[in-house]
Design a protein around this nucleic acid. Structure first.
Lengths: 141, 141
DNA sequence: GCAAGATAGTACGGTCACCTTACTATCTTT
DNA sequence: AAAGATAGTAAGGTGACCGTACTATCTTGC
């Protein structure tokens, strides 16, 4: 009950993890990737997704997601094409480089978690993950 | 290694915890308290602290902390007085209401953690806390 | 005992990650 | 074909920060 307050604890954990991830992404040549870009990399379908779908899945507004897409587009990670079946809609699709970045991020996050497991023990990290997931479900549900 | 990416997991945990904390603070009449205000409530000394000290302890810039203090001052949670020993310096001090809010926040965070312990087991929550702390130290040190 | 530098706090402007309220273009339904 | 729904964009706002620059005051070295 004492010690660092829970919100601070979670925030610091997020911050150190992200710092490490972004540092390593840059080392591998994937520059300019920021936290918010995860909303696209995490939720996009293999064949591309509509902006509205990405917004729904990530819980962001369409505008917020549109900005993220615009930035990723400028950096060459995604491309926007008009949906041939619906002229209003755009399909967001990862470029080759985008797919590489997506794969690198997943791999690096796995590396980070493995490194933690080596230091604290596999079961303690698995337990932390599970406890976090249950706590989130508990507060949300 | 699979499942929700670590940064998303930590972010969600922070968000649900803060949402619950702020909801309950409002229920008790402590309105207008936001995430960033914790920088003051967490680090201020019983007899008051200088702005610079609070900035150092919280890791924020003096300007950022100054804004937070200004807001808390407007809402009656803290007051600024000039340090009699140093005319440049101001001493930030919790008002009576500020102390009540600080105590309420600590108590409510304790309640939240106890509720989790009842649901998942005391040792699992303690284990989660410890794992988080060690992971943070590991990445930082 | 006074100029030179350090320190406390404020002002201004910028960035990032979002939001809401409008709007245009296109589709769907009646 | 008009009325309404939907896809995306535009414009402007907020919260939580940052850096650079400034004023007022204190401390030190000579």
């Amino acid at each position: 009950m004492s010690g660092i307050p829970l919100p601070a604890l979670f925030t610091q954990a997020k911050d150190v993890t992200l710092a490490e991830l972004h540092r390593r992404l840059e080392e591998e040549g994937f520059e300019g990737i920021r936290y918010s870009h995860g909303a696209v990399f995490r939720f996009i379908d293999a064949g591309g997704s509509r902006l509205t779908v990405l917004a729904e899945r990530s819980g962001l507004s369409k505008q917020a997601l549109g900005e993220v897409v615009t930035e990723l587009e400028r950096q060459g990670y995604v491309e926007r094409t008009t949906d041939p079946d619906d002229q209003r809609a755009k399909i967001i699709r990862l470029t080759e480089r985008g797919m590489q970045a997506q794969a690198a991020a997943a791999r690096l996050l796995g590396d980070i978690e493995r490194r933690w497991a080596q230091h604290l023990g596999r079961d303690r990290i698995a337990g932390m993950r599970l406890a976090l997931e249950e706590v989130i479900r508990f507060e949300k549900g």
